[in-house]
């Protein structure tokens, strides 16, 4: 596959998940907080993609997802975008550093950092530090969703690579 159709497809799938996951109730009452299943496409692309393309993927997903869900350029949009950018950077670094580990570690690191940045920015928006109290709960959920993303993305990667080889 060429790069542009591939990443276009990934952005489309990611945005679809992004919209779909807002129907799954998120048990923590922080504005802008969500499961983050749409990051599955980033975890999927992580092993074979260069950093600029990963960032393009994140940006594309945020813009398309933001437009579809009507959050584009709102305060929670900014929270989400900065969160995903920092998480991609950390995931990429983790991929290059921890050679022996699997996708789960990279994915969970990404999800954890995503939430940390989101809460920090959220605290700025509402100008109060009290919402940091929610962080441990959010990180538990991030560990779960990050692991789930990694498992699904990993299985997909294996299937697709088998198909590509035959």
């Amino acid at each position: 596959m060429n790069k542009i159709p591939l990443y276009g497809l990934l952005i489309a799938v990611g945005s679809a998940i992004y919209v779909f996951e807002s129907f799954i109730p998120f048990p923590i009452p922080i504005p802008g907080a969500r499961w983050g299943f749409s990051n599955m496409v980033i975890v999927y692309a992580l092993p074979f993609t260069s950093l600029p393309w990963l960032l393009a993927l994140v940006l594309g997903k945020a813009i398309v997802g933001g437009l579809i869900s009507g959050r584009f350029l709102g305060p929670t949009f900014l929270m989400g975008l900065l969160g995903s950018v920092s998480s991609v950077l950390l995931m990429y670094t983790s991929l290059k550093t921890f050679k022996k580990s699997g996708l789960i570690l990279h994915s969970v690191i990404g999800a954890l950092s995503n939430n940390v940045v989101q809460v920090l920015i959220g605290a700025q928006i509402v100008s109060s530090w009290v919402i940091i109290g929610y962080l441990p709960y959010m990180e538990i959920l991030a560990t779960l969703s990050g692991s789930a993303n990694a498992v699904i993305a990993g299985i997909l990667l294996r299937r697709v690579s088998k198909g590509a080889r035959t």
Binding site: P47, F48, F98, K100, S101, G102, L103, I104, L105, A150, V151, G154, I155, L157, R158, V160, S161, A164
Partner: peptide
Amino acid sequence: LSSKIFSRT
């Protein structure tokens, strides 16, 4: 593409 999903790490 044959990246691991889960390891000891």
